[in-house]
Design a protein around this nucleic acid. Structure first.
Lengths: 358, 358
DNA sequence: CTGTTAGCGCCTTCAC
DNA sequence: GTGAAGGCGCTAACAG
């Protein structure tokens, strides 16, 4: 860390400035946050334009109710003064926020950014702002974030939620919620059905002669993980190959690398990993143990976020995270408009992309 | 796209539901968005607890002003009723939003997610919510986003802003702004100084015998690009090697691959790319032209987001995007507290990470 | 310690 | 078509 920042931070700490500022229960003044410098309000515009405040309001929200030249005059005055409608005041009086929230387990996991981006863009088209939350794979954290966001959003999108079913239902009662990769009846959801791709992967591996296949699992509370695991087991049973399951918990390169030690002690000659990161970790782990890929050991990832970046290029299961993000926003808007789409369930299927690790 | 979604979207379109809902000038009713179902307010809690509304407020914001048992009683009543403070009302009366905004050119560019995450986490610690914006590398879009966010945030962080200097100064006059990878005097900024790493890269390549080196540039309005390019030129001049510059504009795999055709027509035997994505594209392009790497052509990336994912592993220039994100939030908070840190300039230096493409 | 009284800035029903 | 008045839910003085 560079000097300037150190100084700043140290100074701030010394003054007790580092720590919560807002939030339920936290005092919002007294820590030095100055109230925003008085901005220009509707009244000032009204005066400048020589009209009533209500007319200014109308000029911005329903201009067709005013004579065109009045609208013109008001807008001119507003522009001259640099008037910007106060979001909070508007929200308070209409009960509408114009915000959506999206919570993901890990912004930096390459699976999510394309999805976030797609959701972002879709929300932007509809003129919503999006509040982003990073739960850090922690249900308690996720719960806390929902609490923070719920007070200023029309609705939320929970991607790969780690929350217990019950909590989701609770929250959904307060605010419209759309789920991605989580299947809770009664809550609209977009599911990337990796099961289809996993089944293909097992068949593919069996065909290549693998008799024992390992599934390296992901987060225990992940719907995707359950679904992939179940699909793997089912396909293995059908094809008469043995499937063993090993845990990696937090999906990451490190987790994959670490699980390798266990993996080489088993009968497995191939592995399907919960995601590409884990798969990549396993690849490195295997190589460190002098196992050739795919010669000695075959590996299949999931989500296809690494494309042909790895060495050798990783066989993976396609994902459709952009579509999922975009659809989640559409669904949420639909939900906001008519509370009737209560139980939509959109399934996006996937398929195996064979490269050179299998 | 799956049937359900198609139906939903088609139906929405038919009803004229797709299109802007909010925003300056857009009517917020009439498009079917129902006002939130009446939530429980401070008054109801007050009545339930048998106290005045102000006491309820105090119980949540400055409990030390109340007798512990009163606080207890109020909180109990609030919990029983499921009371959640209304963010807008609070913001309206305090002038404080508890929100920060962060705008990046491309959420899905792997350079940004770690930075976003770090900023996110830092903001979360300080109990701020963060609004995320994706400018799509478009200044007009970025400008629009700033406008949208300014009305509901204490301050903004612009990462790799593509805005003209003048606009940044304008906006900074309305709301505190912190820049990442953009150097505007008078605006607090965090700069990842890739110049140091680029100089090392040129020296490294010269040492390996390269006499003509190409710099494949990034977005024209990018400070990082200017700075990298200048550093490359300076180092080349000092070492007596020739530097040519080729444009790739939008940093991406495709841009890198496409520039290869031009690249092979030059004298250059090595290239330094604006970022890792572009570098990776060049790698693929070279390989498609049967050029061996690093035998026939050496490549150095920038930002080090691909680590040892590529084949062969890409030599790159380290980045410090997490630190940058975290520091930007700290700086912004400092700025909010005392308008005095007006001209902080934090510089994070970088270095060359030699792998196998050079 | 706690209740009372004004707004914060905007939208929206009413009159005119 | 436009103005006047009330209220959205909360916080912030000011009293007591």
């Amino acid at each position: 860390m560079q000097p300037v920042a150190c100084q700043l931070l140290a100074a701030a700490r010394a003054r007790g400035h580092i720590g919560p500022v807002f939030g339920a229960g936290a005092p919002r003044d007294g820590v030095g946050l100055a109230r925003q410098r008085h901005t220009v309000t509707i009244s000032q515009v009204a005066e400048a334009a020589g009209v009533a405040r209500s007319s200014v309001s109308r000029a911005f929200t329903r201009p067709h109710l005013l004579r065109p030249d009045t609208v013109e005059r008001i807008k001119a005055a507003a522009a001259r003064l640099g008037y910007v409608p106060n979001h909070s005041a508007r929200a308070l009086s209409t009960g509408l926020y114009g915000n959506l929230a999206m919570i993901v387990p890990d912004v930096a996991n390459p699976f999510f950014p394309p999805m976030i981006r797609a959701a972002q863009d879709a929300a932007d088209d509809l003129d919503f702002c999006v509040l982003l939350g990073n739960s850090n794979e922690d249900p308690a954290n996720e719960d806390r974030l929902v609490g923070k966001f719920v007070a200023q959003t029309e609705g939320l999108i929970l991607a790969s939620s780690r929350l217990p079913r019950k909590r989701i239902l609770d929250h959904a009662q307060r605010r419209p919620i759309v789920l991605i990769n989580r299947d809770v009846e009664g809550i609209p959801r977009v599911l990337i059905d990796s099961a289809s791709g996993v089944a293909q992967a097992v068949a593919h591996l069996a065909e290549r002669g693998h008799r024992t296949i390992a599934y390296v699992s992901g987060p225990a509370s992940s719907w995707s993980d359950k679904s992939r695991r179940a699909a793997a087991e089912k396909a293995a049973a059908r094809l008469g190959v043995t499937l063993i399951t090993l845990p990696a918990r937090i999906p990451s390169f490190e987790a994959g690398r670490d699980v390798t030690d266990v993996l080489i002690g088993t009968e497995a000659s191939a592995a399907i990993a919960f995601d590409d990161l884990t798969a990549h970790g396993i690849m490195e782990g295997m190589m460190a143990h002098d196992r050739a890929i795919p010669g000695d050991f075959a590996i299949v990832g999931c989500d296809d976020v690494l494309a042909n970046l790895t060495r050798p290029p990783l066989t993976s299961i396609s994902s459709r995270s952009q579509e999922a993000g975009q659809l989640a926003v559409s669904l949420l808007c639909e939900l906001l408009r008519s509370r009737s789409v209560k139980d939509a369930r959109i399934v996006l299927d996937t398929q195996l992309v064979v490269r050179q690790t299998s």
